[in-house]
Simulated scan of single mutants.
Amino acid sequence: MYDMTTTQDLRTQIAEPNLTRILLADTRLAPLWTVLRIWLGWQWLHAGWGKITNPAGVWVGEKAGVAIEGFLKGALGKTAGEHPDVSGWYASFIQNVALPNAELLSYMVAFGEVLIGVALILGIFTGIAAFFGGLMNANFLFAGTLSTNPIMLIAAFAVVLGWRVAGQYGLDRVVLPYLGVPGAPGTLFRHDARLPQTPIPPAA
């Protein structure tokens, strides 16, 4: 069969190199991606669950916002000097957005970390979960905190790139064909999927 879009696609798209196709789209490497994905998910789940179950309730509970307020004020203290750990634009974000909403942000961080961890461990919406995990790592780094954030950010970046196979041994294997991805709707949204298809005649 001849696909009328093939010629146009070749004119407007750059072919994917074999190396990146093997690393990022070959299901034979799915076990390696699964290990990385679950490790990253466990890091987030462990961190988030610790915040939710904190006995002092400084993340979730009566004193919600206390912990993150202390963290943010500590970040503001790193804005001095010729080479500050926290940039001026991020300090402005902390003062004008984060600190006034510290309690809400506290809940968002705690439950967000748990949700990211669960999604990565189960392998559902893997690329989206890794993206938001990396976004949180980036914010911690902008606030002048290293810890494991650089390693987790690199791992999240890798999982985002390898999302096509990172969830192969997870729920993505079932969910994505059903829901689809941008530009390729799944069976749920293809209302004509059950209709007989008219074959495209071969090129003359």
Score class of each variant (00 low, 15 high):
Met4Asp: 14
Gln8His: 15
Arg11Asp: 09
Gln13Trp: 05
Ala15Pro: 07
Glu16Asp: 12
Ile22Ser: 10
Arg28Ser: 06
Arg28Leu: 10
Leu29His: 08
Pro31Ser: 07
Trp33Asn: 03
Val35Arg: 03
Val35Thr: 12
Trp39Val: 10
Leu40Phe: 06
Gln43Asp: 12
Gln43Arg: 15
Trp44Gly: 05
Trp44Pro: 00
Gly48Met: 05
Asn54Thr: 05
Gly57Gln: 11
Val58Met: 11
Val60Pro: 03
Glu62Asp: 10
Glu62Trp: 09
Gly74Met: 07
Thr79Asp: 03
His83Lys: 14
Val86Glu: 00
Ser87Arg: 08
Tyr90Glu: 01
Ile94Cys: 04
Leu99Glu: 06
Leu99Cys: 08
Pro100Trp: 08
Asn101Ile: 10
Ala102Lys: 13
Glu103Val: 13
Met108Ser: 12
Phe111Leu: 13
Ile116Asn: 02
Leu120Phe: 06
Ile121His: 05
Thr126His: 04
Gly133Phe: 07
Ala138Cys: 11
Asn139Trp: 06
Phe142Arg: 09
Gly144Trp: 00
Ile151Cys: 02
Ile151Ser: 08
Val160Ala: 09
Val160Met: 13
Val160Ser: 04
Trp163Tyr: 14
Trp163Gln: 13
Tyr169Phe: 11
Leu176Phe: 08
Tyr178Ser: 09
Leu179Trp: 06
Val181Asn: 00
Val181Glu: 10
Leu188Gly: 00
His191Phe: 14
Ala193Ser: 13
Arg194Ile: 03
Leu195Ser: 14
Pro196Thr: 06
Pro196Arg: 10
Pro199Val: 12
Ala203Trp: 15
